[in-house]
Amino acid sequence: MQGGMNGNWTGVRIGALALLWGSTFLWIELALEALTPVQVTLSRCVIGAVTLLVACRCAGHRLPRGRSIWGRIAVAAFFCNALPFAMFSVGQRSIDSGVAGVLNATTPLWAVLIGVVTGMERGLRPLRLGGLLTGYAGVVLILAPWKAAESGGSGIAAVALAAASYAIGFAYMGRHLVGTGIPTISLSAAQLVVATALTAVTVPFGGLEPVDVSARTLIVVLVLGVVATAATFHLTYRNIAAEGATNTATLGYLLPVVSVALGVVVLGEDFNVRLGVGMAVVLVGVAVTRSRRGETPLGVAERQPTTQG
Rank of each mutant, 00 (worst) to 15 (best):
L198R: 09
W110D: 10
T217Y: 00
Q92Y: 11
A49F: 10
V139D: 02
G207K: 02
G206D: 12
I95P: 01
R290Q: 09
T184M: 14
A148Y: 10
H234S: 03
L30I: 01
L52I: 10
I156Y: 01
R125T: 08
Q92E: 15
V50S: 01
A301S: 15
M5I: 12
P108F: 06
V178D: 12
T248S: 11
L141F: 00
L222F: 07
W70E: 03
G179H: 09
S89I: 03
C58K: 09
M1P: 05
I185T: 10
G263V: 05
L235W: 01
V203I: 12
S186I: 07
S186R: 06
S291P: 01
V258R: 02
G252H: 08
P210A: 05
T199N: 12
E29C: 00
V260H: 03
G11F: 10
V54C: 02
V75C: 08
A82Y: 04
V159D: 04
G98C: 08
G3R: 14
G309C: 04
A163L: 00
A164E: 05
T306W: 03
R216Q: 08
M87F: 14
I14Y: 04
F271P: 00
W70M: 10
F170P: 04
V273T: 15
G153Q: 08
G4M: 10
T134D: 06
N247C: 00
G22L: 05
T229D: 06
W110N: 09
G71I: 12
W27C: 01
L83N: 02
V211G: 03
L298W: 03
E209R: 11
A77F: 09
L254M: 10
G244S: 07
P126C: 02
V211R: 03
A230M: 04
V288P: 02
F233M: 13
V201S: 13
V102I: 11
L26E: 00
V227R: 01
H234N: 10
T296D: 07
A245L: 06
I185C: 06
V38L: 12
A149C: 06
T134K: 03
V288H: 07
A59K: 06
V201I: 15
I168C: 14
L255D: 00
V221G: 00
V46E: 00
C80Y: 09
V99N: 04
A215N: 08
M173T: 12
L63E: 09
G181I: 08
G130H: 10
R274V: 15
V178R: 13
A231F: 11
F233Q: 14
A195I: 09
V12P: 00
E243M: 14
T118H: 12
P183N: 02
V273F: 13
P297W: 11
D270E: 15
L161E: 02
L52H: 10
A242M: 14
A228W: 01
G131W: 08
G294H: 12
A86W: 10
W21K: 05
A18I: 08
G276Q: 07
Y172D: 10
R216W: 03
L255F: 02
V46S: 02
V223T: 05
W21H: 04
A249K: 08
A76Y: 13
F233I: 14
V50R: 01
Q39P: 03
N6I: 09
S291I: 07
Q304H: 14
S291L: 09
G7E: 14
I240Y: 07
S154Q: 13
A230Y: 03
G252Q: 13
T24I: 07
R65L: 13
A162L: 03
L17I: 05
G244N: 09
